[in-house]
Simulated scan of single mutants.
Amino acid sequence: MSFDLVAQQPKLLYLLQGVTAFAAVVSLIVLALHRGPVRRKAAALLLLAPALLLLTVGLLLPALRTVVLSFTDSGGQAWAGLDNYVWMCTDPRALVALRNTLAWVVLVPLLATAVGLVHAAAVVRSRCRAFALALVLLPMAMSFVGAGVVWKFVFAYRPAQAAQIGLLNRLVVAFGGEPRQWLVDSPWNVLFLVMVMVWTQAGFAAVLLTGAIRAVPRELTEAARLDGASPRQIFRRITIPSIRPTLLVVVLAQVAGTFKAFDIVKTMTGGQFDTGVLAHEMYDQAFRYGETGRGAALAVLLFVLVTPCVALQGRARRRAA
Protein backbone atom coordinates (compact mmCIF):
# COMPACT_ATOMS: atom_id res chain seq x y z
CA MET A 1 0.00 0.00 0.00
CA SER A 2 2.83 2.43 0.90
CA PHE A 3 4.57 1.61 -2.40
CA ASP A 4 1.38 2.45 -4.31
CA LEU A 5 1.11 5.78 -2.52
CA VAL A 6 4.71 6.62 -3.35
CA ALA A 7 4.20 5.68 -6.99
CA GLN A 8 1.11 7.85 -7.20
CA GLN A 9 2.70 10.92 -5.59
CA PRO A 10 3.94 12.52 -8.88
CA LYS A 11 0.49 12.16 -10.43
CA LEU A 12 -1.18 13.61 -7.36
CA LEU A 13 1.29 16.48 -7.39
CA TYR A 14 0.53 17.26 -11.06
CA LEU A 15 -3.19 17.12 -10.32
CA LEU A 16 -2.82 19.46 -7.36
CA GLN A 17 -0.78 21.88 -9.45
CA GLY A 18 -3.37 21.87 -12.21
CA VAL A 19 -6.24 22.49 -9.80
CA THR A 20 -4.30 25.30 -8.12
CA ALA A 21 -3.48 26.95 -11.45
CA PHE A 22 -7.09 26.72 -12.61
CA ALA A 23 -8.35 28.21 -9.32
CA ALA A 24 -5.81 31.05 -9.65
CA VAL A 25 -7.00 31.84 -13.19
CA VAL A 26 -10.64 31.90 -12.08
CA SER A 27 -9.75 34.14 -9.12
CA LEU A 28 -7.92 36.60 -11.39
CA ILE A 29 -10.91 36.75 -13.73
CA VAL A 30 -13.31 37.44 -10.88
CA LEU A 31 -10.96 40.10 -9.48
CA ALA A 32 -10.65 41.79 -12.88
CA LEU A 33 -14.41 41.90 -13.31
CA HIS A 34 -14.87 43.25 -9.79
CA ARG A 35 -12.21 45.97 -9.86
CA GLY A 36 -12.67 47.68 -13.21
CA PRO A 37 -15.41 48.47 -15.76
CA VAL A 38 -15.59 45.77 -18.41
CA ARG A 39 -17.86 45.63 -21.43
CA ARG A 40 -20.56 42.99 -21.47
CA LYS A 41 -19.00 41.00 -24.33
CA ALA A 42 -15.58 41.11 -22.73
CA ALA A 43 -17.05 40.08 -19.37
CA ALA A 44 -18.88 37.16 -20.99
CA LEU A 45 -15.70 36.07 -22.76
CA LEU A 46 -13.71 36.24 -19.53
CA LEU A 47 -16.31 34.21 -17.65
CA LEU A 48 -16.43 31.62 -20.42
CA ALA A 49 -12.65 31.40 -20.74
CA PRO A 50 -12.12 28.72 -18.02
CA ALA A 51 -14.86 26.50 -19.46
CA LEU A 52 -13.53 26.98 -23.00
CA LEU A 53 -10.04 26.10 -21.79
CA LEU A 54 -11.28 22.88 -20.19
CA LEU A 55 -13.28 21.98 -23.30
CA THR A 56 -10.23 22.57 -25.47
CA VAL A 57 -7.95 20.46 -23.30
CA GLY A 58 -10.45 17.74 -22.46
CA LEU A 59 -12.48 17.50 -25.67
CA LEU A 60 -11.15 19.34 -28.70
CA LEU A 61 -7.50 18.27 -28.50
CA PRO A 62 -8.33 14.58 -27.82
CA ALA A 63 -10.80 14.65 -30.73
CA LEU A 64 -8.14 16.02 -33.09
CA ARG A 65 -5.68 13.45 -31.77
CA THR A 66 -8.20 10.67 -32.48
CA VAL A 67 -8.66 11.88 -36.06
CA VAL A 68 -4.89 11.80 -36.59
CA LEU A 69 -4.63 8.32 -35.04
CA SER A 70 -7.32 7.02 -37.40
CA PHE A 71 -4.84 7.43 -40.27
CA THR A 72 -2.02 5.53 -38.55
CA ASP A 73 -1.14 1.88 -38.05
CA SER A 74 -1.86 -0.30 -35.01
CA GLY A 75 0.92 1.32 -33.00
CA GLY A 76 -0.22 4.83 -33.80
CA GLN A 77 3.18 5.71 -35.28
CA ALA A 78 3.41 4.94 -39.02
CA TRP A 79 1.09 6.63 -41.52
CA ALA A 80 -1.50 4.19 -42.91
CA GLY A 81 -3.66 6.50 -45.00
CA LEU A 82 -7.21 5.22 -45.50
CA ASP A 83 -6.38 1.61 -44.62
CA ASN A 84 -8.35 1.71 -41.37
CA TYR A 85 -11.44 3.08 -43.09
CA VAL A 86 -11.14 0.47 -45.84
CA TRP A 87 -10.91 -2.22 -43.16
CA MET A 88 -14.01 -0.79 -41.48
CA CYS A 89 -16.01 -1.15 -44.69
CA THR A 90 -14.74 -4.62 -45.65
CA ASP A 91 -13.98 -6.62 -42.49
CA PRO A 92 -16.82 -9.07 -41.65
CA ARG A 93 -16.69 -8.33 -37.92
CA ALA A 94 -16.78 -4.57 -38.49
CA LEU A 95 -19.68 -4.98 -40.92
CA VAL A 96 -21.60 -6.99 -38.32
CA ALA A 97 -21.05 -4.16 -35.83
CA LEU A 98 -22.29 -1.63 -38.40
CA ARG A 99 -25.36 -3.75 -39.17
CA ASN A 100 -26.20 -4.21 -35.49
CA THR A 101 -25.73 -0.52 -34.77
CA LEU A 102 -28.15 0.31 -37.57
CA ALA A 103 -30.67 -2.13 -36.10
CA TRP A 104 -30.28 -0.55 -32.65
CA VAL A 105 -30.64 2.99 -34.02
CA VAL A 106 -33.83 2.07 -35.87
CA LEU A 107 -35.50 -0.14 -33.27
CA VAL A 108 -34.63 1.42 -29.92
CA PRO A 109 -35.92 4.98 -30.59
CA LEU A 110 -39.08 3.73 -32.30
CA LEU A 111 -39.95 1.12 -29.68
CA ALA A 112 -38.98 3.22 -26.65
CA THR A 113 -40.93 6.21 -27.95
CA ALA A 114 -43.94 4.04 -28.84
CA VAL A 115 -44.00 2.39 -25.41
CA GLY A 116 -43.57 5.76 -23.70
CA LEU A 117 -46.34 7.31 -25.80
CA VAL A 118 -48.78 4.50 -25.04
CA HIS A 119 -47.98 4.68 -21.34
CA ALA A 120 -48.27 8.47 -21.31
CA ALA A 121 -51.64 8.38 -23.08
CA ALA A 122 -52.91 5.76 -20.64
CA VAL A 123 -51.95 7.55 -17.41
CA VAL A 124 -52.08 11.25 -18.35
CA ARG A 125 -55.58 11.76 -16.90
CA SER A 126 -55.27 9.12 -14.19
CA ARG A 127 -55.29 9.93 -10.49
CA CYS A 128 -52.31 7.64 -9.95
CA ARG A 129 -50.33 9.28 -12.75
CA ALA A 130 -47.31 10.04 -10.56
CA PHE A 131 -47.11 6.47 -9.29
CA ALA A 132 -47.50 4.99 -12.79
CA LEU A 133 -44.76 7.26 -14.17
CA ALA A 134 -42.50 6.42 -11.24
CA LEU A 135 -42.86 2.71 -12.02
CA VAL A 136 -41.92 3.07 -15.68
CA LEU A 137 -39.12 5.48 -14.75
CA LEU A 138 -37.52 3.11 -12.22
CA PRO A 139 -35.27 1.33 -14.77
CA MET A 140 -33.62 4.66 -15.58
CA ALA A 141 -32.33 4.81 -12.01
CA MET A 142 -30.35 1.65 -12.78
CA SER A 143 -27.10 1.79 -14.70
CA PHE A 144 -26.86 0.04 -18.05
CA VAL A 145 -24.44 -2.41 -16.45
CA GLY A 146 -26.96 -3.20 -13.72
CA ALA A 147 -29.74 -3.62 -16.27
CA GLY A 148 -27.52 -5.93 -18.31
CA VAL A 149 -26.76 -8.10 -15.28
CA VAL A 150 -30.45 -8.34 -14.33
CA TRP A 151 -31.55 -9.32 -17.82
CA LYS A 152 -28.64 -11.72 -18.25
CA PHE A 153 -30.13 -13.70 -15.37
CA VAL A 154 -33.55 -13.50 -17.04
CA PHE A 155 -32.11 -15.08 -20.22
CA ALA A 156 -29.83 -17.51 -18.37
CA TYR A 157 -29.63 -21.03 -19.82
CA ARG A 158 -29.02 -24.42 -18.24
CA PRO A 159 -29.17 -27.85 -19.91
CA ALA A 160 -32.63 -29.41 -20.13
CA GLN A 161 -31.95 -31.89 -17.30
CA ALA A 162 -30.74 -29.15 -14.93
CA ALA A 163 -32.81 -26.73 -12.91
CA GLN A 164 -33.30 -23.47 -14.81
CA ILE A 165 -32.25 -20.27 -13.04
CA GLY A 166 -33.33 -17.96 -15.88
CA LEU A 167 -36.88 -16.64 -15.57
CA LEU A 168 -37.61 -16.97 -19.29
CA ASN A 169 -36.41 -20.57 -19.55
CA ARG A 170 -38.27 -21.51 -16.38
CA LEU A 171 -41.49 -20.28 -17.96
CA VAL A 172 -40.71 -22.18 -21.17
CA VAL A 173 -40.04 -25.40 -19.25
CA ALA A 174 -43.15 -24.90 -17.11
CA PHE A 175 -45.26 -24.88 -20.27
CA GLY A 176 -43.61 -28.03 -21.61
CA GLY A 177 -41.00 -26.46 -23.88
CA GLU A 178 -37.23 -26.91 -24.16
CA PRO A 179 -34.85 -24.30 -22.71
CA ARG A 180 -33.01 -22.18 -25.25
CA GLN A 181 -29.79 -20.21 -25.31
CA TRP A 182 -31.47 -16.90 -25.98
CA LEU A 183 -28.28 -14.84 -26.10
CA VAL A 184 -26.48 -17.18 -28.49
CA ASP A 185 -28.93 -17.52 -31.37
CA SER A 186 -28.37 -14.79 -33.98
CA PRO A 187 -30.07 -12.48 -34.99
CA TRP A 188 -32.63 -12.90 -32.19
CA ASN A 189 -30.01 -12.19 -29.53
CA VAL A 190 -29.64 -8.66 -30.94
CA LEU A 191 -33.38 -8.12 -30.51
CA PHE A 192 -33.17 -9.27 -26.90
CA LEU A 193 -30.39 -6.77 -26.21
CA VAL A 194 -32.46 -4.07 -27.90
CA MET A 195 -35.35 -4.98 -25.62
CA VAL A 196 -33.18 -4.30 -22.57
CA MET A 197 -32.31 -0.84 -23.92
CA VAL A 198 -35.99 -0.13 -24.59
CA TRP A 199 -36.83 -1.21 -21.05
CA THR A 200 -34.40 1.35 -19.62
CA GLN A 201 -35.36 4.24 -21.93
CA ALA A 202 -39.16 4.00 -22.18
CA GLY A 203 -39.57 5.89 -18.90
CA PHE A 204 -37.70 8.91 -20.25
CA ALA A 205 -40.07 9.05 -23.23
CA ALA A 206 -43.13 8.52 -21.05
CA VAL A 207 -42.31 11.42 -18.70
CA LEU A 208 -41.63 13.92 -21.48
CA LEU A 209 -44.65 12.89 -23.53
CA THR A 210 -46.95 12.99 -20.51
CA GLY A 211 -46.01 16.62 -19.96
CA ALA A 212 -46.53 17.35 -23.66
CA ILE A 213 -49.97 15.73 -23.71
CA ARG A 214 -51.03 17.64 -20.62
CA ALA A 215 -50.01 20.86 -22.38
CA VAL A 216 -52.41 20.25 -25.28
CA PRO A 217 -55.19 22.89 -24.94
CA ARG A 218 -58.40 21.43 -23.52
CA GLU A 219 -60.40 23.62 -25.90
CA LEU A 220 -59.17 21.62 -28.90
CA THR A 221 -60.10 18.23 -27.46
CA GLU A 222 -63.46 19.46 -26.14
CA ALA A 223 -64.36 20.98 -29.51
CA ALA A 224 -63.45 17.74 -31.29
CA ARG A 225 -65.51 15.74 -28.79
CA LEU A 226 -68.53 17.97 -29.36
CA ASP A 227 -68.12 17.44 -33.11
CA GLY A 228 -68.46 13.70 -32.56
CA ALA A 229 -64.82 12.64 -32.77
CA SER A 230 -63.95 9.40 -31.00
CA PRO A 231 -61.08 9.22 -28.46
CA ARG A 232 -58.95 7.45 -31.05
CA GLN A 233 -59.58 10.17 -33.62
CA ILE A 234 -58.83 12.90 -31.06
CA PHE A 235 -55.55 11.22 -30.18
CA ARG A 236 -54.53 10.73 -33.83
CA ARG A 237 -55.76 14.05 -35.29
CA ILE A 238 -55.17 16.46 -32.39
CA THR A 239 -52.88 15.04 -29.71
CA ILE A 240 -50.17 13.60 -31.97
CA PRO A 241 -49.80 16.74 -34.17
CA SER A 242 -49.74 18.93 -31.03
CA ILE A 243 -46.92 16.98 -29.37
CA ARG A 244 -44.90 16.41 -32.57
CA PRO A 245 -41.99 18.69 -31.51
CA THR A 246 -41.62 16.77 -28.23
CA LEU A 247 -41.84 13.47 -30.09
CA LEU A 248 -38.99 14.60 -32.33
CA VAL A 249 -36.86 15.60 -29.33
CA VAL A 250 -37.46 12.23 -27.67
CA VAL A 251 -36.64 10.24 -30.81
CA LEU A 252 -33.45 12.20 -31.54
CA ALA A 253 -32.30 11.87 -27.94
CA GLN A 254 -32.81 8.12 -28.14
CA VAL A 255 -30.93 7.95 -31.45
CA ALA A 256 -27.92 9.84 -30.07
CA GLY A 257 -27.84 7.63 -26.97
CA THR A 258 -28.23 4.41 -28.93
CA PHE A 259 -25.22 5.14 -31.13
CA LYS A 260 -23.11 4.98 -27.96
CA ALA A 261 -24.59 1.69 -26.73
CA PHE A 262 -21.81 -0.26 -25.03
CA ASP A 263 -22.60 -1.35 -21.47
CA ILE A 264 -25.48 -3.71 -22.22
CA VAL A 265 -23.57 -5.50 -24.98
CA LYS A 266 -20.41 -5.75 -22.87
CA THR A 267 -22.27 -7.08 -19.84
CA MET A 268 -24.61 -9.57 -21.51
CA THR A 269 -22.65 -11.05 -24.43
CA GLY A 270 -19.25 -9.36 -24.57
CA GLY A 271 -19.89 -8.70 -28.25
CA GLN A 272 -19.87 -12.41 -29.05
CA PHE A 273 -22.40 -14.33 -31.15
CA ASP A 274 -22.68 -11.49 -33.71
CA THR A 275 -23.97 -8.96 -31.17
CA GLY A 276 -21.19 -6.37 -31.42
CA VAL A 277 -21.94 -2.69 -32.03
CA LEU A 278 -19.69 0.17 -33.09
CA ALA A 279 -18.91 1.42 -29.59
CA HIS A 280 -18.04 -2.06 -28.35
CA GLU A 281 -15.97 -2.85 -31.44
CA MET A 282 -14.11 0.44 -31.00
CA TYR A 283 -13.24 -0.58 -27.42
CA ASP A 284 -12.12 -4.07 -28.47
CA GLN A 285 -9.94 -2.85 -31.33
CA ALA A 286 -8.26 -0.07 -29.37
CA PHE A 287 -7.81 -1.65 -25.93
CA ARG A 288 -8.20 -5.41 -26.34
CA TYR A 289 -6.43 -6.07 -29.62
CA GLY A 290 -4.08 -3.07 -29.59
CA GLU A 291 -5.29 -1.80 -32.99
CA THR A 292 -5.18 1.88 -32.11
CA GLY A 293 -5.73 3.10 -35.66
CA ARG A 294 -8.81 0.95 -36.22
CA GLY A 295 -10.29 1.94 -32.87
CA ALA A 296 -9.72 5.61 -33.68
CA ALA A 297 -11.37 5.19 -37.10
CA LEU A 298 -14.44 3.66 -35.46
CA ALA A 299 -14.47 6.54 -32.96
CA VAL A 300 -14.39 9.07 -35.81
CA LEU A 301 -17.27 7.26 -37.52
CA LEU A 302 -19.31 7.39 -34.31
CA PHE A 303 -18.60 11.10 -33.97
CA VAL A 304 -19.71 11.73 -37.56
CA LEU A 305 -22.92 9.77 -37.01
CA VAL A 306 -23.83 11.30 -33.65
CA THR A 307 -23.08 14.96 -34.44
CA PRO A 308 -26.04 15.55 -36.83
CA CYS A 309 -28.40 13.89 -34.33
CA VAL A 310 -27.21 16.19 -31.54
CA ALA A 311 -27.55 19.26 -33.78
CA LEU A 312 -31.07 18.27 -34.85
CA GLN A 313 -32.00 17.53 -31.25
CA GLY A 314 -30.91 21.01 -30.15
CA ARG A 315 -32.92 22.63 -32.95
CA ALA A 316 -35.99 20.51 -32.16
CA ARG A 317 -35.72 21.34 -28.47
CA ARG A 318 -35.64 25.07 -29.23
CA ARG A 319 -38.71 24.71 -31.42
CA ALA A 320 -40.53 22.72 -28.74
CA ALA A 321 -39.76 25.43 -26.18
Rank of each mutant, 00 (worst) to 15 (best):
F153G: 03
F155S: 03
S70V: 03
R318F: 02
A94F: 08
Q161T: 14
A21D: 03
H34A: 14
D227Q: 00
L171D: 12
R232S: 02
R35M: 05
Y14Q: 09
S230Y: 03
A215N: 12
L312A: 09
V96F: 01
T292V: 01
L60A: 11
Q161K: 07
F303V: 12
V57S: 08
R317C: 03
A7H: 07
Q8T: 09
P217G: 09
P92F: 02
G271V: 02
G176R: 08
V123P: 14
R236Y: 13
R129N: 12
P139S: 05
P308G: 06
A120I: 10
V136C: 03
M142N: 14
W104T: 01
T269F: 11
L61Y: 14
A286Y: 00
K152F: 08
V265R: 04
D227V: 00
A134W: 15
A316D: 05
L64M: 13
T246I: 15
V86N: 00
L298V: 06
Q313S: 07
L61T: 13
A42I: 10
L226N: 01
V184P: 00
Q77D: 09
G81W: 10
V25K: 02
Q164K: 07
G75M: 00
V216T: 05
T20P: 00
G290T: 01
Q77N: 10
S126E: 15
T221E: 14
S2C: 00
R93Y: 09
L12G: 13
L16Q: 02
G228Q: 00
T275L: 06
A256H: 11
A141V: 12
A24G: 11
V25H: 09
M282G: 04
L298P: 07
F71C: 04
A229Y: 04
D263I: 09
V118S: 10
T221M: 08
G36R: 14
L305K: 03
P139I: 06
A202V: 01
L133S: 06
R39K: 11
S230T: 15
M140W: 14
V86L: 09
A297E: 01
V145W: 13
A141D: 02
R125C: 01
P217N: 07
R236K: 07
A296S: 13
A122F: 15
V115N: 00
A297R: 05
L60D: 09
L298C: 06
A132Y: 15
S27H: 12
L209C: 05
F22V: 14
C89G: 06
L47K: 14
R39E: 12
G116F: 08
A224V: 00
K266M: 14
L82N: 05
Q17P: 00
L48E: 02
L117E: 07
R318M: 04
F192Y: 15
L31H: 08
L110Q: 04
D274L: 06
